[in-house]
Design a protein around this nucleic acid. Structure first.
Lengths: 219, 219
DNA sequence: ATTATCTATAGATCTATAGATAATGC
DNA sequence: ATTATCTATAGATCTATAGATAATGC
C-alpha cells in the first residue's frame, strides 16, 4: 500500500514535501495519460512509465500499487478534466437540448483542441458511460429534465443516455480513423442527429445545433 | 512466420493433417475469444491461452506470430460470425429502416442468445466501426439507400453510421453493467431512437421498431 | 518421409523490494 | 530526524525456439 502523506490536501497545499510528492504522482499520471492516448498503455512496462515521467523506478510504488491502478486513476483524471471543460461550456445553460448540443460539439472539437483528452475518451469512454460519478449522472439528469418539460420524448432515460454517449464515441472514432472528417461541421451534424433522437423535430434540432456556443472552449 | 499448409482450403477440406491443423488453430481462436469476452485478454500469457485451448505451448507458434496477432484474428472471427447472424435476420429485408431495426434488436438480444459474441462486440466493436470490410460497409450502403429513397434524412452518411453503431455499443455496455435492463423491450426502444435519428417521424419509428422480426435468431 | 504437436529450456523481460541517497522539517 | 526518491537486484514470469514425439501420407 502506498504511503499516505501526513495530511491530505489539495495538490498545491502542504509543505514542500507534499508538493514534491504531488509532483511525482502527477508526472506518473501524465505519463499514463499520454500512453493511454497513444494506445500504448497495454504494452508499457512500469520502467517505461517511470522513464517517461522522469521519475525513479522505485518511486512508482510510493504512489501506486500496480500498473492498472495507475491507469484507472489516469482515466478518471482525464474524465474529470473533461467534465470540467464541458461544465465550462454547458454549465449555465438552461435548455436541456442546448446543453446536449453544446456538449456534443465541444467534445468533438476536442479532437483538435485537446487531442490527448479526446483520445483517452475515445479509448476508455465507453467503460465510464454509466458510472455513478462524473458526467453520466449529470447527463441522465438533463435527459430526465428534458422529458419532464416535454422537450425530449424518450421512454427509458438510461437507454437514451447509452445511445447519446455511444454515438459521441462513435464519431470520435470516425474522426480518429478518417482525419478528413472533422471540425465544427461534423460536430453540428451529430448534435442535430442526437437531438432528433431525443425527440426534437428535425427543423428545431438543426436550429439548436447551430446556435453559437455559449462559451468557446478554454484550454 | 507460421507455416502454411500445402494447400489452403476451407476448414474441413484437405486431408487429416489439414483438419488436425485447423482444429488446433480453431481451438486457439476459441480460447482467445473467450478471454476477450471475459476481459482477461490483456493479462493472459501464451501459456494460459494454450492451456485453455488444450494445446501444447509450442503449437501456438505454428499458427500465430504473437499474442496480438491471435487476438486480432479472434476479433475478426467473432465479427464475421456476428455479420452472418445479422445477415440471417436482415439479409432479405428491403426497407432500410426495417434492416436497421432488425439488426439493432438482434444485436441487443445477442447479450442473451450469444453472450460471448456480444461481449467481444461490446469490448472491441468500436475499433471496427469504420473498417473497410465486414458489417460497416453494408450498414453505410443501407444508410445511403435510405437517403436516396427519401426514407432517411442525414447529411453525411458516415457520421450517421458512427452514431448508429456507437449507440448500439452504448446499449450493450449499459446492459452489461445493469443486467436488469435487457431484453426485447430495451432493444425496441433503441431501434426506435435510432430510426428517429435517421429521420423517421416518431410514430413511424415506433411502428417499424415493433414489427415482428423477419426471422428469429438462430444459434 | 513428412508434418504438426508437444516438452523442455535459454534468455529476456518485468515486478517488487531492500537499502542508499537526497531533500526538507523542526 | 524524517520522508520521498533513486539505484540495484533477486526472483518470478514470459517469450521464442530447439529438439523429441506422435500422427498421417504415400
Amino acid at each position: 500500500m502506498p504511503d499516505q502523506p501526513r495530511e491530505s490536501r489539495g495538490s498545491h497545499a502542504g509543505n514542500r514535501f507534499d508538493r514534491r510528492r504531488a509532483r511525482t504522482r502527477s508526472a506518473l499520471i501524465s505519463a499514463a495519460r499520454a500512453l493511454l492516448a497513444e494506445g500504448a498503455a497495454a504494452e508499457a512496462s512500469i520502467q517505461e512509465i517511470a522513464d517517461r515521467a522522469d521519475v525513479g523506478f522505485g518511486s512508482f510504488y510510493n504512489h501506486f500499487e500496480s500498473k492498472s491502478a495507475l491507469f484507472d486513476t489516469a482515466v478518471m483524471d482525464a474524465l474529470d478534466e473533461y467534465g470540467q471543460l464541458i461544465d465550462a461550456v454547458a454549465g449555465g445553460v438552461e435548455d436541456p437540448a442546448e446543453v446536449f448540443s453544446a456538449s456534443v460539439r465541444m467534445t468533438i472539437r476536442m479532437m483538435e483542441t485537446h487531442p490527448e483528452l479526446a483520445q483517452v475518451l475515445r479509448r476508455r469512454g465507453i467503460e465510464q458511460l454509466h458510472a455513478d460519478a462524473g458526467l453520466a449522472p449529470r447527463a441522465l439528469r438533463d435527459i430526465e429534465k428534458g422529458v419532464a418539460t416535454g422537450r425530449f420524448s424518450v421512454e427509458d432515460p438510461r437507454i437514451a443516455l447509452s445511445a447519446v454517449g455511444g454515438s459521441i464515441l462513435g464519431l470520435l472514432q470516425l474522426e480518429s480513423v478518417r482525419p478528413d472528417i472533422s471540425g465544427p461541421d461534423a460536430a453540428e451534424q451529430l448534435a442535430a442527429l442526437i437531438l432528433r433522437m431525443l425527440g426534437l423535430p428535425p427543423g428545431e434540432a438543426r436550429e439548436v445545433a447551430r446556435r453559437p456556443l455559449p462559451l468557446e472552449p478554454r484550454g
